[in-house]
Every structure is written in structure tokens, then in C-alpha cells.
Design a binder for these strands. Structure first.
Lengths: 147, 147
DNA sequence: ATTGATATTGATACTCAATCTCAATATGAA
DNA sequence: TTCATATTGAGATTGAGTATCAATATCAAT
């Protein structure tokens, strides 16, 4: 039983009564092969270089669709803007973002996750998702920043 | 020795060679008395009702100034927009945001804070600030949401 | 109190991401 | 192949936030 992201996406669309289009596929595949975090504008620029008829609105619509479905997540940048990353076969993780070189380091901490659940329970709050980002300087930029 | 927020702000401005203006004062005081989290637009609307000459740009400029100075912090909302809260005489805290009623619940957890520092140290990352927000449904909205 | 260097302000124009509209098109079940 | 309808793209529009710059306010020095 082979469950590629494409397959999973297709099944999701079907279950929702939505249609699989080449635009949706191409945006999904862009995200799957992207190494760094992709902004909507960047995705639009890169993909419309291939297919000049691709519309900006479709990129935003598809990103929202993928986000609602839980297939992609947002990442915040230090300047307040944001990008997306796919979540196929990737365990949950949070981010450390370097304010100088913009590098994003991923981290996971099961204890923090547990504590979050515990806190939520205390408040009878039903957690749906969270963002946890530490902004600062990565090792290299910390060294450079010494005045 | 009395150190009101106003005094602290004044001293900060002086130290930076900046000037204390009535606009800056009035925006600071708005934030101090605000119960809920204030958006730039809301601040602008409310304050310009009093002083019709107040400019939108000044609100943004002052918020940035206050943020740089560490006197106010951002809070993210579930829709991606954000507001501000002052940090005078308030210990650090993080947020749980209800996606339905938009209520913001504050929480603090020293263990999480410690773990964050520990993780940063592991990566030789110098943390400057962080955002940690849990989105979900508050007690009341969880009950309502049962289908 | 007056002066004067300069930080600040507000009106306005502008930018740019994101959304809306809607006619044309693509999808997929029958 | 047909057809109901989900989707798309072009372009207009919105709206938050920024840049510009002449007019003004601040405050330290007189």
C-alpha cells in the first residue's frame, strides 16, 4: 500500500467533493520539493515561469486549501511575514529563526508538547494547533555580532 | 522612588536622544489602559476620535518604537493579523487564542521557558524573543462546538 | 523667554500582499 | 459524450503598512 502525498491529497479532495487540477498538483509538488520555506509570492513567480497562465489567486487559494487540510503549515519570519512548509511524513517541529541570516532551525521537544497539552487541559482549552518560534541569532551570526 | 511607565518611557526617549510628544504619550496611555489587545487600526480610530489630527503613520511609528524599546509586544491572532500589549509590570506570558470567540488566555510555564533556553544552548543559538501561541477553542466554545 | 538645531508629525501618495468578481474553462460522475 | 458544478485567471479592489516632505514641536543652550 503506497500512500504518496499526491495520493493522500487526491483522496482528500475526493472526500470533500473537490477536484484535482493541474494547478493544485503543481503547487503541492512545488512544496514537496522545496528545501527552504516557500512564500506565496515565490511560489507564484517560480511556477508561473513554467506556466505563464497560472494565476496569483490560485496560489493563495491552494495554499489555504492545503493549510485547512493540514497538509501544510505556516512559518513566521522575524519581519512578520510568513511562508509555508509541507507536513507530509514530517514529525511536528517548531522553529528557531535567525534574525540576521534568516536561517530556520527546526527543533522538537516532547516535554514542551506535553506541557502544552497539560496547560490546555487545565484551562479546559481544546488545542488545535500552535506556533512556537524562538527568534534570535544562530551560532555563526552570534559570533559575528560580537562588537 | 516612583517609576511609572510614563517616567520609564520618558527616560528611554531621553537616553536615545528622542523627544517626548503628546502623540507618543497618548498612544502609550492608550495601551496602558486597554484591557483587550489593541490593533494599530483600532488605536488609530479611537485616538483620532479625540484628536482628529493624529496621523495613521504616527501610530505605526510609535508602536514600532515601543516594540523596539521592549515596552510592548505583539500578539498573533488566529487569522494571521496581530495586536499589541504593553509589558509594564507584567511578567512574561504566552497566549492561548480561541479561534471562535477570539478570547485570549494568558499562561506562563517556567519549565517551558527553561527548556527553550536549554534547546537554544544546544544549538548555540542566542534567543532574543519568542512567540508561543496555542490556537484552539476555549472552554465555552468547545462545549458549543460539539455537533 | 528666545533661539535654533533637529526630531517629529500628518497629509498624501504609494507599495504590495492578499482578496473579490465573474466570465470562461476544466473536471469527473453519469 | 454530456453536463452540473468546481475551478481558474485577469484584472479590479482592498487594506495594512511605508515613504516623502514641508510644516511643526521639542528641548537644550543661551
Amino acid at each position: 500500500m503506497k500512500t504518496s502525498p499526491q495520493k493522500v491529497f487526491q483522496q482528500y479532495l475526493e472526500a470533500q467533493g473537490l477536484k484535482l487540477t493541474k494547478q493544485r498538483t503543481s503547487i503541492l509538488e512545488y512544496l514537496l520539493r522545496a528545501q527552504n520555506h516557500s512564500t506565496p509570492e515565490r511560489i507564484y513567480r517560480d511556477l508561473s515561469a513554467q506556466d505563464a497562465t497560472l494565476g496569483r489567486a490560485t496560489v493563495f487559494r491552494t495554499l489555504h486549501l492545503l493549510e485547512r487540510a493540514g497538509f501544510v503549515g505556516k512559518i513566521l519570519f522575524a519581519d512578520g511575514s510568513h511562508g509555508y512548509e509541507h507536513k507530509f511524513a514530517r514529525p511536528h517541529h517548531d522553529h528557531m529563526v535567525c534574525v540576521d541570516c534568516k536561517q530556520v532551525i527546526e527543533f522538537t521537544n516532547p516535554t514542551i508538547e506535553k506541557l502544552q497539552d497539560q496547560i490546555s487541559r487545565e484551562f479546559q482549552f481544546t488545542p488545535l494547533w500552535h506556533t512556537h518560534e524562538i527568534f534570535g541569532r544562530c551560532r555563526k551570526c552570534s559570533q559575528k555580532a560580537v562588537v
